[in-house]
Design a protein around this nucleic acid. Structure first.
Lengths: 151, 151
DNA sequence: TATTGTTATACTCTATAACTATA
DNA sequence: TATAGTTATAGAGTATAACAATA
């Protein structure tokens, strides 16, 4: 049980990740915020306040894209943007109570969708998925933040 | 080991799916085809020829969106589109050898990225992810195709 | 000079509505 | 009438390039 993953197992995982995107979209009704916007919001909740550049690097989008995403969140009161007292160039983005509530509502809806899907599986499958969530989260955390200029 | 999943476990899985999108984007260099385009292409390979409407329903996008996606794939020779002999209104989309090759090249690149990420995990995590791939694929297959009109 | 962030501009993806052709 | 698909149009998301302000 300590052998290294075989190439076929790795490509299985890679193919799976591709298909999971489809699932992720289906759990996101159109008309809501984009996946990126929510991902950024979730990141602010999980990791605390962040600079715009750091947020863009973490989400893997360009700085201007994040400027626009944050602009929208700001207009709708889900985040606040304050100047960084220690650096006149920088701004700090933080999630508001409204933002936390929006995130919670969305999580609730998504959980309901996932619960329905899980219910279609047998107990063995359910438990192997649940057993793998921690590992998958660590897999995601292994994704390095993008360097702004790709250097 | 046969108890039903608890609410917290379900929301863990749901939260994970949200974060997977970030990973998915990071595995997709910009400038390539969109995730949807590749998802449709993979679906054609896996399930065989399909009507445009069926493809749109399976991917969870509108019919016009799929018309455009297929149009692009057609222009670049990755799919073929032929009239359905049994129904003059319908068309059948099929993947070409060029399309299969493009899919294989992309899978190769993504597998390399996934291999790097997996290498950052310990053996226990690696194996719990690999052990869950079958179950996760069945979870995805449990997603119903979208009705064109949402009825 | 380098970094942080915004503005300008263009392209892709997506949706809804209106349309054509066939069942 | 209903269904399969396309065309028209608009809005969101994204990128690169050029810019302003600060370090």
């Amino acid at each position: 049980m300590t052998r290294a993953p075989e190439p076929e197992e790795i490509s299985d995982v890679a193919g799976l990740l591709e298909e999971l995107f489809r699932l992720s979209r289906r759990l996101t009704p159109p008309g809501n915020y984009s996946l990126t916007v929510y991902s950024a919001l979730a990141s602010l909740k999980r990791h605390g306040d962040a600079r715009l550049t750091a947020l863009a690097a973490h989400e893997g989008v360009s700085q201007p894209s994040m400027t626009q995403a944050v602009g929208r969140l700001k207009r709708e009161g889900l985040v606040q943007q304050v100047p960084d007292p220690s650096d006149g160039r920088a701004v700090l983005i933080s999630i508001t109570d409204t933002g936390l509530a929006a995130l919670a509502a969305r999580s609730q809806r998504r959980s309901e969708g996932v619960a329905e899907l899980l219910a279609a599986l047998d107990a063995t499958d359910q438990h192997s998925i649940i057993a793998a969530t921690g590992a998958l989260r660590r897999l995601i955390d292994a994704v390095p933040d993008q360097r702004p200029d790709g250097k």
